[in-house]
Design a protein around this nucleic acid. Structure first.
Length: 822
DNA sequence: TTATTACGTATTTTT
DNA sequence: TACGTAATAA
């Protein structure tokens, strides 16, 4: 194993000098081969060494999936089959991408400059899109909108269309559009029946309008990063060909999580260069016969870990792989190197209840270990208390807190544990909580920078015109909107024009003019000043920092800290443009793992991780499986929940502990719940039912199993149950937790700072300048009418600015779009 | 225009 | 419960 160490890691591409007159293959096999191949079992090795043609690796939990992927890349490189820049390697999450980069780094040394095309679907799609932005009616500095921006934008569209956004919430439309994009559907491709379900048949039109608006805002949402990429490939075969030629090898991680759009994207790229592009509506239908020779694509996944169906992931993609990629080699990895016998048996048994699996049987050579435990407690509070105590016990036995995780179904469950841990003084860390960049102060700061970088970014402008308060309220913004729409210009340009006139009250006008002048100044400065410094200047001069300094609320200090962190994190990027490109894509935070602390996270964000001790609370009907999954997706939903349960249990190396509570508070009211059906699906031989250690003597052995249906009667009468009364009594918990309740801001930015150099904003500037000069179609002495000032005569024309003497209001300067000729 | 209050309603998972 | 929106007052 370690005799392979002879060859230094960074000698990787240097296999040539290593061996003398042997053939290339032998050379490669003899030299660094041991380095990355020796640690692989036969199946893994098979997956790594099969370089030609499509390969599907079915990798169960803990079977060395990432190891296979990274080894395969190492293999491709050391065989000289491709250079780093010719390997496309896509993952689903940033976390996974980072992990792969990290492991590759260890495996190869610095020899491989970071693999330029290793990243998430979205970041790579975005990158391709920026390179060819003009071809899809964008500019290369386009903004990536997050869900929040998206919804605000849709809200505006709904209002413009006089649609009651009570009855038809913008959020719902956003989900619809997202769904369409996930399925690779442009506005014209959405089935008319589906488009009609929203807003009395206006859904389709709204989608189209939304796309339109995105283009004028020079923005793309998440779905666009893939969908527009697909459109680009279809409409410009030459561009597609270029990428097909570049990518000699394609590797896909977590293939079971891909959606239709991602599938199409991969299909296009995986065809041999020059092949006819797939016909328009080639969603993966049963009869899609792949005729084109397909390249070397290797997909790794596990159908039993598909947990993103609600987000458009198609388990079908992986189930149909052999059909889609004929001649594909399928490798099963079934040797589990992570969990003990009992844990694995429990997980396997559970998942066996699902139908429509490709079927794998996980094996382990590890000892049986401790049985999986199931513990019932009276209510969620007791559950938290019990888990807290068990953790303290584990700690006393010498376990690291870092080796302990609590995995919950829904994030609201976390609170209870946080409360408990704070009172216990137990260090914990919440993973995947409110994202750094989603915090209001970060988004505000970013909005300022966005407006500087891209004056057409109306959403950003709107966000900060009146933050901090400048006396520019709804009325002002509405007026700017009117003007902007009429002249088809961005809001910030409208503001610049209106400020020259008497349209606004002096006070508002003054502060808007100040703001616009500031932006002008910052924009100039941005060309000479380092972007971090610029950010500081902006935050300072805009009064934004002041605003929080004056704020006396508890979290103001934390927000200021976050702002500092934001500025600090900008250093990793070459310029403002590069920073803004990345911020919207790199959504998760990292780091902070130095301290010994219990991890608290959702089951979803736990995928890919492992811990010695895993606590799984909340195994109750309605919560897990989640009611909504059941309602919306029926059987498929249940199976996905079951896969989620499977993922949860298989995170554990040594101990998996499940919990259910009889009473849980949801939306402030107490509900009596039944233990999850998943508990019944566990194999008795590997499970132990234990007493709750949380005191009270309730719960425990009889809590589920034969007697579980005894609880049914108490449904609906929860207010009279002892639990409810006790809960009332417990309300007055003395929780004086003075210290810092919030988890501090951490940098969400990965190590990769591959920001490319692009000239910022010159293009924008020109465009703006031009739109200003549009001639007015008024002539001197025209008699006009103005909403606010009444009738008057034009006495002077300066571009689109008119000076008018009004009969009542006297001489005023106004913008022409506010008056009409009479 | 902003601050305050009242009311109603929605609550999974995330690139 | 807790948040956001809408109505109302200053």
């Amino acid at each position: 194993m370690s005799d392979a160490r002879k060859m230094p890691a960074n000698d990787l591409p240097a296999y040539q000098p290593a061996a003398g007159g042997i053939g290339a293959r032998a050379r490669a096999a003899a030299a660094p081969a041991a380095q990355y191949l020796s640690g692989l079992n036969p199946e893994q090795r098979d997956a790594v060494e099969t370089l030609d043609g499509p390969v599907l690796v079915l990798a169960g939990a803990g079977t060395g999936k990432t190891k296979v992927l990274t080894s395969r890349i190492a293999h491709i490189l050391s065989m000289g089959r491709a250079r780093p820049g010719e390997i496309l390697s896509v993952t689903f999450t940033n976390k996974a991408a980072r992990e792969m980069k990290h492991r590759l780094g260890i495996m190869l040394g610095q020899a491989v400059e970071g693999m330029p095309w290793l990243g998430t679907f979205h970041s790579i799609g975005g990158r391709i899109l920026r390179t060819h932005a003009e071809l899809v009616q964008l500019k290369s500095n386009f903004t990536v909108l997050d869900t929040d921006d998206q919804i605000r934008l849709l809200k505006q569209l709904l209002q413009a269309d006089n649609i009651d956004d009570k009855r038809w919430p913008a959020r719902m439309l956003a989900n619809l559009i997202d769904g369409w994009k996930n399925r690779g559907l442009t506005p014209s491709q959405v089935p008319s029946g589906e488009a009609a379900v929203f807003g009395n048949g206006k859904g389709g039109k709204l989608y189209a309008a939304y796309q339109d608006r995105l283009k004028t805002l020079n923005a793309a949402d998440f779905g666009d990063l893939l969908l527009e990429c697909i459109r680009l490939f279809r409409e410009h075969p030459d561009v597609l060909k270029q990428y097909q030629q570049r990518f000699k090898y394609i590797l896909v991680d977590e293939y079971q999580d891909t959606n239709v759009a991602q599938y199409l994207w991969l299909r296009l790229l995986s065809q041999a260069p020059g092949q006819r592009v797939l016909p328009e509506a080639d969603a993966p239908s049963a009869d899609s016969k792949p005729t084109a020779p397909l390249k070397n694509i290797c997909c790794v996944g596990d159908d039993d870990q598909s947990i993103y169906g609600w987000r458009g992931a198609e388990v079908d993609n992986i189930l149909r792989f052999e059909h889609d990629f004929p001649g594909a080699k399928v490798v099963r990895l079934e040797r589990n190197y992570r969990s003990t016998g009992h844990i694995l048996a429990a997980a396997s048994h559970l998942i066996a209840h699902n139908e429509g699996r490709l079927g794998k049987t996980l094996r382990t050579e590890d000892v049986d270990g401790e049985k999986v435990t199931v513990t019932g407690s009276w209510d969620s509070e007791e559950e938290a208390r019990a888990i807290g105590e068990e953790i303290e016990q584990l700690q006393r036995e010498g376990n690291k807190l870092n080796d302990i995780a609590i995995l919950v179904r829904a994030s609201f469950q976390m609170r209870e544990f946080e409360d408990r841990f704070v009172t216990l003084g137990l260090p914990y860390r919440v993973i995947g909580g409110p994202r750094f960049y989603e915090r209001a102060e970060i988004r505000d700061a970013l909005a300022y920078l966005r407006v500087i970088n891209s004056p057409a970014d109306d959403l950003a402008f709107e966000r900060i015109v009146n933050v901090p308060k400048r006396g520019l309220g709804d009325a002002t913004v509405q007026m700017l909107h009117d003007h902007a729409r009429r002249r088809r210009i961005p809001l910030s340009e409208a503001a610049r024009q209106v400020v020259e006139t008497d349209e606004m009250k002096p006070k508002a006008r003054g502060s808007l003019r100040d703001l616009m002048m500031s932006f002008e100044r910052w924009r100039t400065q941005s060309e000479v000043m380092p972007h971090t410094e610029l950010a500081e200047v902006v935050l300072d001069e805009s009064g934004y920092t002041d605003m929080w300094q004056k704020d006396r609320s508890a979290d103001a200090a934390g927000r200021l800290e976050n702002l500092k962190e934001l500025v600090r994190s900008m250093e990793e990027f070459e310029n403002l443009q590069g920073f803004l490109e990345h911020i919207s894509l790199v959504m998760d935070r990292e780091g902070g793992a130095d301290e010994d602390a219990v991890s608290v996270m959702t089951l979803h964000s736990a995928k890919g991780l492992e811990f010695d001790n895993v606590f799984l609370p909340g195994w109750e009907e309605g919560l897990f499986p989640h009611q909504r999954a059941l309602d919306d997706q029926g059987r498929a939903g249940l199976e996905e929940e079951r896969r989620l349960a499977h993922v949860g249990i298989t995170r554990a190396r040594r101990r998996a502990k499940l919990y259910f509570a009889t009473n849980r508070r949801i939306h402030g009211t107490w509900n009596t719940t039944m233990p999850s059906r998943f508990l019944d699906e566990l194999p008795a031989a590997n499970v132990e039912i234990t007493e709750s250690k949380g005191g009270s003597g309730w719960g425990g052995a009889g809590g589920y199993g034969a007697s579980r249906f005894d609880n049914v009667e108490s449904f609906g009468s929860s207010y009279s149950t002892p639990g409810w009364q006790r809960a009332q009594a417990n309300r007055s918990r003395g929780g004086g937790q003075g210290g810092s309740g919030f988890s501090e801001g951490q940098s969400p930015f990965g190590g990769s700072s591959s920001s490319r150099n692009k000239r910022p904003m010159t293009i924008e500037g020109e465009l703006i300048a031009k739109s200003t000069g549009t001639e007015s179609d008024f002539t001197l002495q025209d008699r006009v009418f103005h909403q606010k000032f009444g009738y008057g005569n034009v006495t002077k024309i300066d571009g689109n600015k008119l000076t008018i003497v009004f009969e009542k209001a006297g001489e005023k300067k106004v913008v022409d779009s506010f008056v009409e000729r009479v």
